[in-house]
Structures are given as structure tokens and as C-alpha cells.
Design a binder for these strands. Sequence first.
DNA 1: TCGCGACTCTGACGGACCGTCAGAAATGCG
DNA 2: CGCATTTCTGACGGTCCGTCAGAGTCGCGA
Lengths: 221, 221
Amino acid sequence: MAVERVENDADVMATDGRVIGRRAIQTRRRILDATASLLREQGALDLKVIDVAREVGTSPATFYQYFADVEDAILCLAAELVERVPEFAGQIDGRWADDDGLDRARALVGSYTGFWDEHGAVLRIMHLRADEREPRFRRVRNEYNNQFMVVMVERVREGQAAGRLPQGMDPDATAGAMLSVLDRVPSYRESFEKRGTSREAMVETIARILFGTLTGVRTPT
Amino acid sequence: MAVERVENDADVMATDGRVIGRRAIQTRRRILDATASLLREQGALDLKVIDVAREVGTSPATFYQYFADVEDAILCLAAELVERVPEFAGQIDGRWADDDGLDRARALVGSYTGFWDEHGAVLRIMHLRADEREPRFRRVRNEYNNQFMVVMVERVREGQAAGRLPQGMDPDATAGAMLSVLDRVPSYRESFEKRGTSREAMVETIARILFGTLTGVRTPT
DNA sequence: TCGCGACTCTGACGGACCGTCAGAAATGCG
DNA sequence: CGCATTTCTGACGGTCCGTCAGAGTCGCGA
């Protein structure tokens, strides 16, 4: 069975195509970390290569040895986040139909919100550039989203088969809508807290919406 | 009754604070239109002041007479879009509880999707910068979102009062979640069409989710 | 019609960042 | 230790930024 590795820290390439060694891998990693850090602090629109270089304590020319531009580095960070998705998509399994299904939804919403708090800066650019039709970000976002879509669609089909969900609802569209909720609510959370909606109420409500919409099981009052 | 106008084409100011005349208003408008156009075509991350100036056929210095930078111009475009929200938020009224409520939801989803197709480039930056905590964009987004929130919360409260929706769901959080769906689905639409989900199925499903979640009325099979 | 004052636009400039390349520095292997 | 390989960087031409003084345009009164 062939093991396919699209991106592996062990054989990453420089922009000129050569395979890089141990020291270079460390440098590249520091550049990526600095990019993520600055992205969180100062946003994407005025993040300059020279800022990253200064943060790492290196020359701008070094940056260009590993990435074509800042966006290229962000793409790389986004690709790394794709690897994290199973932690969350894996939570949306067949046991959602069990009695404690709603609890599973609550756990998902809570943990995924934490993930967004940590990596939102990168995810936002992934979504922006994908929405702007940038092909590489589209591919990465598809890999990201599809992992959620597959399991959500499964739940919807099960709900429809059991007669709990109407046939008139398209499983893919339903899953897409719920993925939207999962991905955007963390952004709104802070605004809501200012308006007096507690984090707990937020998680509880979103969990009920996801659970109810994906499974068709009616939640108790 | 005092008429308050926060932003009116009749008394817009230049960056130096002076009120501008007829010719200047035209120039400013052409700059805004060019910004919106280029934003659609080439995205936000590499939209330069000089690009806008060239598109308008003017000097970069002229741009700086009216806007501090490209982001400032986009903020202005976003503020203009806030004026358009009533067309859509107004559709989410008390008649959603009537027999043809689902039809109203369908109409909303269809028309708002068109709005996103046209102005998505600006709305995306509004969301990005607001998520990145930029205060001016936060204010504009709040004005934008609140119009939807108010009416959606009304529907949820009515649904709860009528016993159709569980009390355990927070009206604000529910409205926020549905606003997420409304705002993000247009972005995903194209991806879904590639995967075989028709626009009609998309609109129908999203309408059912919004309608069902906001009113608690069960949709027929 | 002309001239004047107010409004609007722009050429030109110092500065910042981009992206590249030749060669300097570090590494590690025999 | 000497040398080949890998990695890093100083320096440079080019683009864009953001500003200002002054040139261009317009409307209005005489």
C-alpha cells in the first residue's frame, strides 16, 4: 500500500525546487510561526514580508527562499490546519442519534470554538481567498470543508431515512448551512457577549440547532 | 422630527476636512466605483491605490484627497451597503407565521443571494476587518447585522411564545446562527453547484432551515 | 466678456517595501 | 583540516506610498 504524502515536513522544498535540510526546515518553521503570530496581531491586509523577517530576526531574502510571498506562507499554514479537522469532524459520528447526541453536539461546538479562537486569523484568510476564487486556497478549503461535509451529510441521510427529516431538504445544502454556522459563530461570539448573551447560552443554542437540523431529533424544552 | 444623516452625498468631506463641491463629489464617486470594481476583479490583498487611480484615469494624489487609503474607501462602500439592508431584513416580518411563510423565506434567500453576488467583495472585507477587530468596520458591521438581528429575534420570540420553539434556545444566538447561514451560503453556492447541488435545491433547503429554525413551524415533507 | 477667488487636481519627491542575485557564512563529511 | 554542499544575506533596481506646492479648472460678479 503506497503512502502518499502531499506535504511532509521531511521533504519540503525551497522556492527553487531543491529539497531542504535540517537547518532550513527549522528556519522555515520559524518563518511560518512568525507569520501566524503577526497575522493574529496585525491582520492580513498590511502584513509585509519585511515584518516577518524582522520578527524571525533574519533577512527578507531568507523568506523568499521558502515562500513566494506572504500569501504563500498563509496557504501553507492553512494546509497544516486541514490536518487538524479530523479531531472535530470525527465528533460528528453515528452516535449523534443516541440519547446523549445533544451532549456530543455541545462538546463539538465548545472545542471547535476554541480552535477558531486559536487559528481564526489563518482560517479567515483561507475563506477570503477561496471566496475570491484563488485556486490553491479553494483546494485547501475544499479538503478542509469536505471532512465536515461527509459526516454531516451522513447524519442528514440517516435522519431522512428514519423519517425525522423532510425529504425536501437537500443533504448537501443542509450540511453546508450547518458548516456555515459552525464556522461563523465563533466570530460573532464576542459581539454577542457584549450584548449580554453568555458563552454558555451561545454554545447551548448552536449545539441544539446543529443537532436538530442534522438529525431531525426534536430537542426537549 | 429631526432628520439625522450620518453620511450624505451632499456634504461629504475631503481628508483635510473641507466640505467638497459638485465636481469633487463626482470624482469621489468614480474612485469608489473603481475601487468596488477592482475589488471584485482582483481581490483585496493586492489592491493598490495606484491601480484605482489608473482605473479612474487620475493621479494617485487625487485618491488621497478623499480617502486615507484603500481600506478607507472600502469602509465607505460598506457603509453604503448598510443602507440596502432594509430591502432584505424587511422581508423577515410577522407574516412569516402565515400559511405562505415559507414562500417569504424562499424569496428572501433568492434575493439576498443576488445581493451577495453583486457586493460580496465588499462584504467579505467588512467581515474580515471586523473579525480582525478593526473598530470602524466593527461599527459598520454592527449596523448591518443588527437590522437582521432585530427582526429575526422577533420571529424567534413569537415562536417561543406560541410554544413552537423550545425555551432553551437563546433568541439572539439563534438569530446569529441563521444570519451566518444567510451570509455564508452565497459563498459556498458555487462549490455546491460543482458537486451537483442545483441552485434551486440550495435555495429551497436554506429557506426551510431559516423558516423552521426562526419560527418553529414544521415544514411539510 | 473678462478677471478674480475658490475649488480641484497633479507632478514630483523622499521614503518604504518588493523580489533577485552573487557571493559570504555555516555546515558536515572524508 | 580542507573542501563541497547547503544556507543565509547585503545590496540593488524597481514599484508603490503618502505629501506638498503649485498648476489647472470653474463659477460668479462686474
